[in-house]
Design a protein around this nucleic acid. Structure first.
Lengths: 221, 221
DNA sequence: TATCTGTTAATTGTCAACATTTCAAATAAA
DNA sequence: TTTATTTGAAATGTTGACAATTAACAGATA
């Protein structure tokens, strides 16, 4: 099988995005075209394009002519979660409306895996992975392309913020019954219940973030 | 006073965006770097950057190596309004929380102008303009940068869709009392009432869009 | 000492040339 | 007629060179 390499500007985009997630470049740090071009061993052209894209995504910030790594504040994190809190329940509601048999099987299977992972007291990373798959599935079955696009953008930032701001935040205990409630509602195509269950789910997330935020600002005094 | 010209890629970005809004390029039409470069009298470099940005915004769509003007479906319009319906009320709620005296004055002044415009049976365009200012003000006073960024993206698409899909749709009668309810709630810093009032406001919009959508799909049968 | 002013190094902005890929029309084969 | 294949024009991908701008610093001046 013959595969063709992706264009450099696409690869650069993915590379830099990943590097940002992994904190290879630090918040507030200046990124230069020359520097990145040298690092990746390509010319500045494709780098520029990648940087424009990241800029549009909000992961890079333009100050005058220079480009810096986005340096989110705690306020930004709260602001973002506030948006997430509105859109995730919508996704759940729509998923309950549009999910098909195959989707229901997938969803049940993920719930099963989460349940097992909790029983086995698996690693945080593994549970996070399942959680992501869970959200992805629901989003996909919302069948709302606009919502999907928005959430992808939002998620890119959430991932970034988690790795920068919220490094120390304890992943909260997994409440299996929250997942169960959401899944059952979707399986029964009960839109309103799915929406409410998801709402409750993300509300707890926001609550924990708020507490963390207050603790941090307290310490800063 | 000396002003400095913006970089070409910024100007190109704005130019193309505006051209899309104004239907200078038609949905589904292919846009080529060479064509745009010739049209604007600059080289392909800055054009590429502008196109990457528009791409990220969702106004241009990549199919393989080629770039086409986004060709939204009616489903896309509904999908987008569904998102809008969730975020606008959030903006109103937050505005009710964060608005200051100056903001209250601005808001009252806009309401006044809308009221006069309705009394005078002013042109649709004028009322639309006030409506935009109204939404902008509320968004700004939400003091949520993430929300603002999201809504800007969403709005760029809404504007585009209005000019393409919804050309024929009649702008609905302006219900002044809807505006009044929202404004009064915000002036009194009543978050929940502001949220609900805005919710009701956008629900009507979605309802009308839905009816239009059904009519169109009916005709297609 | 503080502010102004050149000077310089680093960075971004822009272009034109060249390489590669892609699509589709034209031609050949079944 | 249909199906492959060829071929070439048009488009994108990539680069290196050069221009313009910016930021920082050192020295001059008050």
């Amino acid at each position: 099988m013959i595969i063709k390499a992706e264009p450099y500007h696409i690869q650069a985009y993915k590379y830099i995005q990943r590097a940002l997630w992994e904190k290879k470049y630090h918040p507030g740090e200046q990124l230069t075209e020359v520097g990145l071009a040298n690092e990746l061993g390509i010319s500045r052209g494709p780098i520029r394009e990648a940087m424009r894209m990241l800029n549009q995504d909000g992961l890079l910030v333009q100050k005058g002519t220079r480009t810096f790594v986005y340096n989110p504040t705690y306020q930004d994190a709260l602001d973002l979660y506030l948006c997430k809190e509105r859109l995730e329940p919508l996704a759940a509601k729509l998923a309950a409306r549009h999910i098909d048999e195959e989707g229901k099987n997938e969803l049940s299977s993920i719930l099963q895996k989460i349940s097992e992972a909790v029983d086995n007291e698996s690693s945080i990373d593994e549970i996070t992975e399942y959680n992501t798959a869970f959200n992805d599935l629901i989003l996909r079955y919302s069948k709302n392309d606009q919502l999907i696009q928005m959430m992808n953008l939002l998620r890119a930032k959430v991932i970034y913020m988690r790795s920068t701001l919220l490094g120390e935040i304890k992943r909260r205990e997994v409440f299996l019954n929250e997942y169960e409630e959401i899944v059952h509602a979707i399986l029964e195509n009960d839109e309103d219940r799915a929406e409410q269950a998801m709402q409750k789910h993300v509300e707890v997330d926001l609550e924990i973030l708020n507490q963390y935020f207050e603790k941090v600002t307290e310490e800063e005094k």
